[in-house]
Design a binder for these strands. Structure first.
Lengths: 183, 183
DNA sequence: TTGCTATGAATGAACG
DNA sequence: CGTTCATTCATAGCAA
């Protein structure tokens, strides 16, 4: 795949006019946009707030057409897919049964929230929920694949790590500054 | 021939109760059900009461498997996403600085009471929400996106408009009658 | 063309 | 109610 296409206008494809019958065209992120988003993600950003989404979108619009919903979806998808990938690793390779600590144990008991809201219940309360257990673990004697898995877990755990990110380090033009400070 | 064109998933029903014995995870609304729900929403229904939910669900069950909670969630989601979308559009496209009239700013006498319209009031009753006066305005020289935004605002206005809706106009079969009268 | 993979988009369900 | 999660649909790009 050619990596040129610097800047934007990568959506050169006909899009709408193409033989589709559905709505025309979906967002096609430029390499710069993907880079920034990925860096943000790796910096610890997982679930940007509405404000952050808008700021990011605004900044990224420099590199090409983009809407805030694109940023929103990007993070949703990226997070979800990393999660399911990790999940797959857990299931596919059960040989690592020495460590298992998915950051925050999700106790998935069957849900009954609609009835909770509308009183369609018939008694029997059960507001039990397991609290987080986030424990540390010995970081030694780990094989390649194992340490890789650890990385996954580590990534998951930094849900809300504080961070700041600056766009434009080696970009050709702008040196845009996008400092995200939460809380 | 098949080209994959479709406004939506054409799979629809079957699923759980069908003879295929497929997965029956979550509700998969039929196109008819979606149509009715959408029409109800567009008619002004935003937060149906428990009774209304029951009625709607009951009627829609004709078109396929459905539960009350599905209707409940549908409206919750639809409303939430409508607002979210509108919010995003407002911020994403500030280039419409020629028109700005949130909902019912009838009087040209400026926007003196935003709090009245979006009443997040805290001292008095709020029985008087939106009077459906929804004034018209020159629908000319409006770009595509602009008129789209207008539609958003218009939709927001009919928060609790009285309405009645009849299912089955051009439906293939039933002519179900679902008159919802509130208050 | 056909199939696969990655990923944008949508939405049912549910949480806080 | 706003936000988040899980699953699925749809499509662009590439490979065989």
């Amino acid at each position: 795949m050619e990596e040129g296409m610097s800047g934007f206008s990568v959506r050169a494809r006909g899009g709408c006019g193409g033989g589709g019958g559905t709505k025309c065209g979906r967002w096609n992120p430029t390499t710069e946009q993907v880079k920034v988003l990925t860096d943000l993600f790796r910096s610890g950003l997982r679930t940007p707030s509405t404000d952050q989404i808008q700021k990011i979108s605004s900044q990224l619009s420099f590199y090409g057409k983009i809407e805030s919903k694109n940023v929103f979806y990007w993070f949703q998808n990226h997070k979800a897919r990393e999660r399911q990938k990790r999940r797959r690793v857990l299931v596919d390779e059960p040989k690592d049964d020495g460590i298992h600590f998915p950051c925050q144990d999700n106790n998935i008991t069957s849900t009954k929230h609609f009835s909770e809201i509308y009183n369609y219940n018939q008694g029997s309360e059960q507001p039990e929920r397991v609290k987080e257990t986030l424990q540390l673990f010995p970081l030694n004697s780990l094989s390649e694949s194992e340490s890789e898995k650890l990385r996954f877990f580590a990534e998951e755990c930094k849900e809300n790590a504080a961070f700041s990110y600056t766009i434009g380090a080696e970009m050709d033009h702008p040196t845009l500054d996008l400092r995200l400070s939460f809380l």
